[in-house]
Computed example of a mutant assay.
Amino acid sequence: MAKVKWKTDPAHSEIQFKVKHLMITTVTGYFSKFDLEVETEDEDFTKASSIVFTADVNSINTNNEQRDTHLRSADFFDAENHGELRFVGKNYEETGEGRARLHGDLTIRGTTKPVTVEVEYHGIVVDPYGQTKAGFEVNGKISRKEFGLMWDAVTEAGSVVVSDEIRLHCEIQLVKQA
């Protein structure tokens, strides 16, 4: 069996998060700078020996500069002291029909907690340029407060301004490395 290395194709991948605002609408944000490196046996992702995802906290974008500055501040991500978030996959558990659960450790703001995400594997193709690519959709949920993102505010009517639950949605295209 040959070890195969894979890296993110950033032009065809996106990392999004969604959070309730005032509990009546959802704000979507993303990280524009991120990387995922995977090492597999041959092209078998179920036998991945290494899965490491990182995102540059300073690349956070919610289409509102004032909010993005607040998210980078010590109230939330504390980007000055914790400029990267990191997920290290530990166990890829197949659940059938191209679906799996990926268990691993997520580190945000210096706090590491176990996290499980749902993975949908879309297959491997060779693109018109001869590159071998693999596609995945990843979904999950985390509690921001478990990672030290504790900022809270309440409206005069008693509504929470920002929910604790953060929903994750990622579209990932990996490129097989030569």
Rank of each mutant, 00 (worst) to 15 (best):
M1W: 07
K3A: 11
D9W: 06
P10T: 14
A11W: 12
H12K: 10
S13Q: 11
I15E: 13
F17Y: 02
K18C: 06
V19L: 11
H21D: 04
L22A: 11
L22E: 10
M23T: 14
I24H: 08
T25S: 13
G29C: 08
Y30E: 12
F31K: 03
K33C: 03
F34W: 06
D35C: 01
E37T: 07
E43Y: 09
T46H: 10
K47H: 08
A48W: 01
A55F: 01
A55Y: 02
N63D: 15
N63F: 15
N64K: 15
D68Q: 01
D68F: 00
D68P: 03
T69C: 04
T69P: 04
L71T: 00
S73N: 12
D75R: 00
F76Y: 07
D78P: 08
E80H: 10
G83R: 07
G83E: 13
R86V: 07
V88T: 14
G89A: 09
Y92A: 12
E94R: 11
E97M: 12
R99M: 10
L102H: 05
H103C: 06
D105G: 05
D105N: 08
T107K: 02
T112I: 07
T112S: 14
K113Q: 14
K113Y: 07
P114T: 06
P114L: 04
E118C: 00
V119C: 03
G123E: 06
V126T: 15
D127A: 08
P128C: 05
G130H: 00
K133P: 09
K133G: 06
A134R: 01
G135W: 10
E137C: 10
G140A: 01
G140P: 00
G140T: 02
K141E: 15
I142E: 00
F147P: 05
F147G: 06
L149M: 10
M150G: 09
W151Y: 15
W151N: 09
A153S: 14
V154N: 15
V161D: 02
V161F: 02
S163N: 07
S163P: 04
R167D: 05
H169A: 04
H169V: 04
C170K: 03
E171I: 11
Q173S: 04
L174C: 03
L174K: 03
A178K: 14
